[in-house]
Nucleic acid binder design. Sequence first.
DNA 1: CACACTTTGAGAATCCGGTCACAAGGTCAG
DNA 2: CTGACCTTGTGACCGGATTCTCAAAGTGTG
Lengths: 219, 219
Amino acid sequence: MADTPRRRIPEATVARLPLYYRALLETAERQVATISSERLAELAGVNAAKVRKDLSYLGSYGTRGVGYDVEYLLHEISRELGLTRDWPVMIVGVGNLGRALANYRGFGARGFQVMAVVDADPQLVGRSVADLAVESIDDLDTIVAERQIAIAILATPAAAAQEMADRLVAAGVRSILNFAPTVLTVPEGVSLRKVDLAIELQILSFYQLRRGLPAGALS
Amino acid sequence: MADTPRRRIPEATVARLPLYYRALLETAERQVATISSERLAELAGVNAAKVRKDLSYLGSYGTRGVGYDVEYLLHEISRELGLTRDWPVMIVGVGNLGRALANYRGFGARGFQVMAVVDADPQLVGRSVADLAVESIDDLDTIVAERQIAIAILATPAAAAQEMADRLVAAGVRSILNFAPTVLTVPEGVSLRKVDLAIELQILSFYQLRRGLPAGALS
DNA sequence: CACACTTTGAGAATCCGGTCACAAGGTCAG
DNA sequence: CTGACCTTGTGACCGGATTCTCAAAGTGTG
């Protein structure tokens, strides 16, 4: 499996691959065989030069004068993103958000299946969420090991998040998607991404405040 | 007060201000009067040089040899972010996610109050969600105008999202936080930010697949 | 007051990503 | 087979963001 010592793919490009992937899925469904960078750019909401540059990091998969073969490109991107295999996912924290996420079919991407839902509250253990029984956080190690869970979604209150993250890492989880509104630290070698409602709203607020105001008219 | 011909604040800095804000809130609660860039950096999960550079865009609010006055800095940042006023928020789409968001108290930042919850499905109109009655999307214009809603959270299925976004913009909403897994286009002058579960998971998957090589996906 | 120590603020250097522009490589009509 | 026409792939350039570094400005002690 010694895979190509392929050029390092820039982070910004990695973040866009899923957009291309989605656009290509839709295109494939419409039985379109090839697609130009122009069109792909439009679907993904970026510009054509960026699409070409991004795709060139994966290799030369296009044909000049024609465009990209939709099926082939789809395959290459999904391989690159690791979407050709299954990723069992665990959700930690069964509050409002945790439950919604567990039920969220809109993961869109198949391959990310929620295989476990855990919570620290003994009162919640045993309840059913999205066809799964809530399990105890104390069984983390076993659950992670047995179900080969590499990716966890953290949806606990902020106060509990760091401790949960630590326990996840200790149990062998190497990728965490954090929804708790707090800064987490994880060791080198663990990927951490965050989704933070409050921050997004505050950023919107910043620009909203300045909209329409004459430039420099802030008090 | 001789008002600052204030430097334009870089986008990257704007995105970090909420982090500092949160860190400062916690610090203020602990009755700590001043804070160094070093300490603030630690709390916000960034490095000290960045903190200082970021804060310098707001003006020179620190004291050399001492640090920053917590209360004062807090005040300046919240003013900058528009957190000194209230932002009525509307949630569009009452699926799993919409409901969870409506109930989500963890907005953390006060000032963002959900003032309306709307859906296109007549079956849902009238039901109660988070102490609000679900209203019809057809009353959008009135709701937005009367409740002065500037920020909307889109939590519809992907297929409906663009149309809803268009209607929101038409009704006067200038800031949209999109949770629907699709690319939206909005006119110039409207802020759009997105939160996309599937994309986040796919990015994690990418790095998980390569564990060992890159430094990974920092937030 | 002098001196050691702390910490900010900002210029300079560097890194990274985005955009431009165009040669290279391909299609297709006649 | 030729010439008009597309579209990719990429090197060159540009600009924003991050990091480095250190002078400047403050504190505190004796």
